[in-house]
């Protein structure tokens, strides 16, 4: 099983740590620590295990870019980091990733969160990454009806009737 969280560091403030334990014995199988370029507070918010991959998303501090949305793919068996992607909005304000889903075919990892590009407030930002390579496939930005705080908090992919659909926003609909 996988647990991800914030872990205090003696030299780099707080790092994003991800660990695998044996569900049978609790034995630590692997542990990975990620320190963002800004060496400040790095904190995950969501984890999913799909097949032989572990996907984590959260926010980590960039160098002069405040929090950036940060997404990681690990090999489930070894904990090896397969790819890391960071998203920094144009204004280099706080960009925080809250939710993560994997499409039913396993081909895309989609994250959603809040990104501030202007002083007017935040937008939802939703990004799909290629699960194999980590390459960005698409990015959606939703500014809402007024220039204010739009915050996407949760995300789930839907495979009803084989038609993938993705919804993000706050609050999550109970129908999902």
């Amino acid at each position: 099983m996988i647990v991800t969280g914030a872990s205090s560091s003696a030299t780099t403030s707080v790092d994003l740590a991800t660990e695998a334990y044996s569900t049978a014995t609790g034995e630590l199988l692997w542990s990975d620590r990620y320190d963002g370029p800004g060496h400040a507070t790095d904190n995950p918010y969501a984890v999913k295990v799909v097949g032989d991959r572990v996907y984590v998303t959260g926010n980590t501090e960039g160098q002069g870019t405040r929090f950036d949305m940060s997404t990681f793919a690990y090999d489930l068996a070894t904990g090896k980091r397969l790819w890391v992607q960071r998203y920094d909005g144009a204004s280099h304000y706080d960009d925080t990733s809250w939710g993560l889903a994997v499409t039913p075919d396993g081909s895309k990892v989609v994250i959603t969160g809040t990104s501030q590009d202007t002083d007017a407030g935040t937008d939802y930002v939703t990004i799909a990454y290629d699960a194999a390579s980590g390459k960005q496939v698409w990015l959606g930005r939703y500014d809402g009806l007024v220039g204010s705080a739009d915050r996407a908090h949760a995300l789930r992919s839907n495979q009803f009737r084989g038609a993938p659909a993705i919804r993000s926003g706050q609050p999550a609909s109970s129908a999902w």
């Binding site: 099983m1 996988i2 647990v3 991800t4 969280g5 914030a6 872990s7 205090s8 560091s9 003696a10 707080v14 790092d15 740590a17 904190n43 995950p44 918010y45 969501a46 984890v47 999913k48 295990v49 572990v54 984590v56 959260g58």
Partner: peptide, 13 residues
């Protein structure tokens, strides 16, 4: 964590 500070889990799977 190495600093024995605030270590807070966020999510598990």
């Amino acid at each position: 964590g190495p600093a024995h500070g605030f270590d807070i889990p966020s999510a598990m799977a």
